[in-house]
Simulated assay, not measured.
Amino acid sequence: MFNFDGQLHPEESKILTHTNRGLRYGDALFETMRAVNGKLYFWEDHYLRLMASMRMLRMEIPMSFTMEFLEEEIQKTLRSKDLDKAPARVRLTVFRKDGGRYLPDNNDTSFLVEAETLEQPFYVLPGGDYEIELFKDYTLNADPLSTLKTANKLLNVVGSVFASENGYDNCLIINQHKHIVEALNGNLFVVHGNTIKTAPLEDGCLNGIIRKKLIELIGKLEDYELEESAVSPFELQKADELFITNSIMGIRPVTKYRKAEYGNKVAADLIGKLNAVARLG
Rank of each mutant, 00 (worst) to 15 (best):
Glu116Gly: 14
Gln120Ile: 01
Ser53Gln: 04
Glu60Met: 07
Asp105Arg: 10
Val113Glu: 00
Arg89Asn: 13
Arg101Ala: 06
Trp43Cys: 04
Ser146Cys: 05
Pro87Ile: 03
Ala142Asn: 08
Ala142Tyr: 06
Glu73Val: 09
Ile173Gln: 04
Pro126Trp: 07
Glu133Thr: 15
Val113Gln: 00
Lys149Trp: 06
Tyr130Lys: 10
Val124Gln: 00
Ser160Ile: 00
Val161Ser: 09
Gly127Gln: 13
Leu78His: 08
Ser164Val: 02
Glu60Ser: 12
Met63Leu: 13
Asn106Val: 02
His46Cys: 08
Leu118Met: 14
Gln120Tyr: 13
Asn166Ala: 04
Glu68Asn: 04
Val158Gln: 10
Arg55Gln: 15
Glu116Ala: 13
Leu172Lys: 01
Phe122Ser: 13
Asn106Gly: 11
Ile132Phe: 02
Gly127Asp: 13
Glu116Trp: 12
Lys153Ala: 11
Glu72Asp: 14
Asp137Leu: 10
Leu48Trp: 07
Ala52Pro: 00
Leu92Lys: 03
Phe135Lys: 02
Pro104Cys: 01
Trp43Val: 02
Leu40Ala: 05
Ala142Ile: 05
Cys171Asp: 05
Glu73Ser: 03
Val113Tyr: 03
His177Arg: 15
Val161Arg: 11
Lys149His: 05
Tyr123Ser: 04
Pro62Trp: 12
Asn156Trp: 09
Leu57Glu: 12
Leu83Ala: 13
Tyr168Thr: 02
Val157Gln: 02
Gly167Ile: 06
Arg96Met: 04
Gln75Ala: 12
Asn166Met: 09
Glu44Ile: 03
Leu125Ala: 05
Pro144Asn: 13
Asn166Arg: 15
Phe162Asp: 05
Arg55Cys: 08
Ile74Met: 07
Asp137Met: 07
Gly127Glu: 15
Leu172Asp: 03
Leu140Phe: 01
Phe135Arg: 01
Glu60Leu: 05
Asp82Tyr: 06
Leu118Ile: 04
Asn156Ser: 14
Val124Ser: 02
Glu114Tyr: 09
Glu73Arg: 14
Leu50Met: 15
Lys85Ser: 14
Arg79Met: 14
Ser110Arg: 12
Thr150Lys: 07
Lys178His: 15
Met54Lys: 12
Phe135Gly: 03
His46Val: 08
Leu70Arg: 03
Asp143Met: 13
Leu134Pro: 02
Leu92Asn: 05
Arg55Gly: 09
Asp169Ile: 00
Thr66Gln: 09
Leu134Ile: 10
Ile174Tyr: 01
Glu114Ile: 11
Ser110Trp: 08
Leu172Met: 14
Ala86Leu: 11
Arg89Asp: 08
Leu140Pro: 00
Thr109Arg: 04
Gln176Cys: 12
Tyr102Lys: 11
Pro62Ala: 11
Pro87Gln: 10
Lys149Asp: 10
Val161Met: 11
Phe111Asn: 12
Ser146Glu: 07
Met59Pro: 09
Pro87Val: 11
Glu133Leu: 01
Leu172Arg: 01
Asn166Asp: 03
Glu131Gln: 14
Val124Gly: 01
Asp82Pro: 00
Phe69Gln: 04
Leu40Gly: 02
Asp98Gln: 05
Ser53Pro: 11
Phe111Arg: 09
Asp98Phe: 11
Ala163His: 01
